[in-house]
Simulated assay, not measured.
Amino acid sequence: MASSFVVGDKFKHKVTELLSNKDLSLPRALKEELEELLEKPQPTVLSFSTARKLQQYIRDKEHPLYLHELLEDSCLHLPEVVKPPRNLELVARLEKIKSKLANEEYNRMTRNVNSQEINRNGTLADFGRQVRSVKAVLVTVFNFLVTVVAAFACSYMGSQYLFTETTARVISAVIAASVVGLAELYVLVRTMEGELGEP
Results as ranks from 00 to 15, higher is better:
Lys83Pro: 02
Pro85Asp: 04
Arg86Cys: 04
Leu88Gln: 09
Leu88Val: 05
Leu88Phe: 03
Glu89Ala: 09
Ala92Cys: 03
Arg93Ile: 02
Arg93Glu: 10
Arg93Thr: 06
Arg93Pro: 00
Lys96Gly: 08
Ile97His: 15
Lys98Trp: 05
Lys100Thr: 12
Lys100Cys: 07
Leu101Glu: 06
Ala102Ser: 14
Asn103His: 15
Asn103Cys: 06
Met109Asn: 11
Thr110Asp: 01
Thr110Leu: 05
Asn112Asp: 13
Asn114Gly: 10
Ser115Asn: 00
Glu117Ala: 12
Glu117Thr: 07
Ile118Gly: 02
Ile118Arg: 09
Arg120Met: 13
Asn121Asp: 05
Phe127Pro: 00
Gly128Ile: 14
Arg129His: 08
Arg129Glu: 10
Gln130Ser: 11
Gln130His: 10
Val131Leu: 06
Val131Ser: 03
Arg132Ile: 06
Ser133Thr: 11
Ser133Gly: 11
Val134Arg: 15
Val134Cys: 15
Lys135Ser: 12
Ala136Ser: 13
Ala136Ile: 01
Ala136Phe: 01
Leu138Tyr: 05
Val139Leu: 14
Phe142Arg: 11
Phe142Gln: 05
Phe142Glu: 09
Asn143Arg: 10
Asn143Cys: 06
Asn143Ser: 06
Phe144Pro: 01
Phe144Met: 06
Phe144Arg: 01
Leu145Val: 11
Leu145Ile: 05
Leu145Tyr: 13
Val146Gln: 13
Val148His: 02
Ala150Pro: 00
Phe152Asn: 01
Phe152Arg: 02
Cys154Asn: 07
Ser155Trp: 00
Ser155Ile: 02
Ser155Thr: 03
Tyr156Ile: 01
Tyr156Trp: 05
Gly158Tyr: 08
Ser159Lys: 03
Ser159Trp: 02
Gln160Ile: 09
Gln160Asp: 09
Gln160Gly: 08
